[in-house]
Amino acid sequence: MSDAAIHPIRFILSDVDGTLLHPDHRFSPRTLDAVHQLREAGVFFSLASGRPPKAMLHLVEAFGIDIPVAGFNGGTLINPDGSILVAHHLPAEAALITLALFSAEPEVEVWVFADGDWLRRDPPGPMVQREADGLGYGPVVVESFEPYLDRVDKIVAASNNAQLLVELEARLQPKVQGLAQVSRSQPVYLDVTAMLANKGEALKTLAHHLGVPLEQTAAIGDGGNDPAMFHVAGLSIAMGQAEETVKRQARVVTGSNVDDGAAEAIERFILAARRAP
């Protein structure tokens, strides 16, 4: 008897950018239809993203999601109406260490997310417009991040120098060990969040909230922050364009986001398995 027959998937948690969305931040009709078929089959579907929660609400509406979703890599879980279910803030000590390291790098743009806003201090760099296009809104310019240190949701180092971010990740990890999560949500973004702000914890929290055993959950993603939920889910699915280190931590690999890999995975591994005799 197959795993699908023993543990049919009842809940899917999906990454957003690089997974559900094409590179131009749009989703395809095929992906929308696949998610709607899940709902008709009685399978819960939700999102886990490095995005701020308010940058996910239009997707909640478009996909008809009626259960909580996870923003800030799982740091904040919100209900479909935008109200907060769970919030984990970055300790001030970790925030100070992170800001000191990132601010010393001229090729890095430093962003802080707090109080529901995207904050920047320096003159706008080349990465700002890319982020604004993805989120649907721009940053708030502040003179200092200090007033926000007790309520930081996420700090981001953004740079077109992807190798520099790999090096910064390795340098920062031991400095904030036990205080913060450090991961690259995309090759050009290095995210720092609270210890409990990870997609694995989000998956566990949402599965418990829904009353679904972990062996009946699935996770789909492409970034360095997605293996945290791969290690928890009953079925882990990596996108075709993901880095090899991400793919190796997933049970199966689907097509790329350009080729609607998320829809392919839903159709092949979830819906087809539920229809099988």
Results as ranks from 00 to 15, higher is better:
Ile155Arg: 01
Trp118Gln: 06
Ser183Gln: 14
Arg248Cys: 11
Pro227Asn: 09
Leu172Cys: 09
Met229Phe: 12
Arg30Tyr: 09
Pro123Tyr: 10
Phe269Glu: 10
Leu203Asp: 05
Ile220Asn: 00
His25Lys: 09
Asn73Asp: 12
Val142Gly: 11
Tyr189Trp: 15
Leu90Phe: 04
Ser256Val: 04
Ile220His: 04
Val252Ile: 13
Gly116Tyr: 11
Gly221Tyr: 00
Arg151Met: 10
Leu57Trp: 05
His209Gln: 15
Met195Asn: 07
Gln173Asp: 08
Leu271Ser: 03
Asp66Gly: 12
Leu179Asn: 01
Pro213Val: 12
His25Glu: 01
Ala132Phe: 01
Glu264Trp: 02
Gln249Ala: 09
Glu105Gln: 15
Leu99Phe: 09
Asp122Leu: 07
Gly240Ile: 05
Thr76Lys: 15
Leu38Trp: 09
Gln249His: 09
Thr98His: 09
Glu131Gly: 06
Ala202Trp: 06
Ala265Cys: 03
Asp122His: 09
Leu135Pro: 00
Leu168Asp: 11
Asp24Met: 01
Gln129Leu: 07
Ala250Pro: 10
Phe27Gly: 00
Pro53Ile: 07
Arg120Lys: 11
Ile97Met: 07
Asp81Cys: 11
Thr245Phe: 08
Phe145Tyr: 15
Asp153Cys: 11
Glu40Gln: 14
Leu168Trp: 13
Pro174Arg: 00
Gln173Trp: 11
Arg275Phe: 02
Thr254Asp: 01
Asp66Leu: 03
Asn73Phe: 04
Glu169Pro: 14
Ile237Gly: 01
Gln181His: 10
Pro126Asp: 14
Leu57Tyr: 05
Gln186Arg: 06
Ser144Pro: 13
Glu201Gly: 04
Lys247Pro: 02
Leu119His: 07
Phe230Trp: 05
Glu215Ala: 08
Asp226Thr: 11
Tyr189Arg: 02
Lys54Leu: 08
Leu38Gln: 04
Pro68Val: 12
Pro52Thr: 02
Pro23Ser: 00
Asp150Gln: 14
Gly211Leu: 10
Ala238Phe: 11
Phe44Tyr: 15
Ile270Glu: 03
Asp259Phe: 01
His208Leu: 14
Gly50Arg: 02
Gly255Lys: 08
Met56His: 08
Ala273His: 03
Val212Ala: 13
Ala4Arg: 09
Gly211Asp: 09
Val69Gln: 00
Leu165Thr: 09
Gly50Met: 00
Val108Glu: 12
Glu107Trp: 00
Pro106Val: 14
Lys175Met: 15
Val60Trp: 10
Ser28Glu: 00
Gly138Glu: 14
Arg184Met: 15
Leu235Ser: 05
Val69Trp: 07
Gln37Gly: 03
Leu149Arg: 10
Val60Ile: 14
Val192Asp: 01
Gly261Met: 02
Gly64Tyr: 11
Gly71Ile: 03
Gly261Val: 01
Thr19Ser: 06
Thr245Cys: 08
Asn79Gln: 13
Glu243Tyr: 03
Arg39Ala: 07
Asn160Ile: 15
Gln177His: 12
Gly116Met: 10
Thr217Glu: 10
Ser159Lys: 06
Gly138Cys: 02
Glu131Ala: 05
Ala242His: 04
Tyr137Val: 05
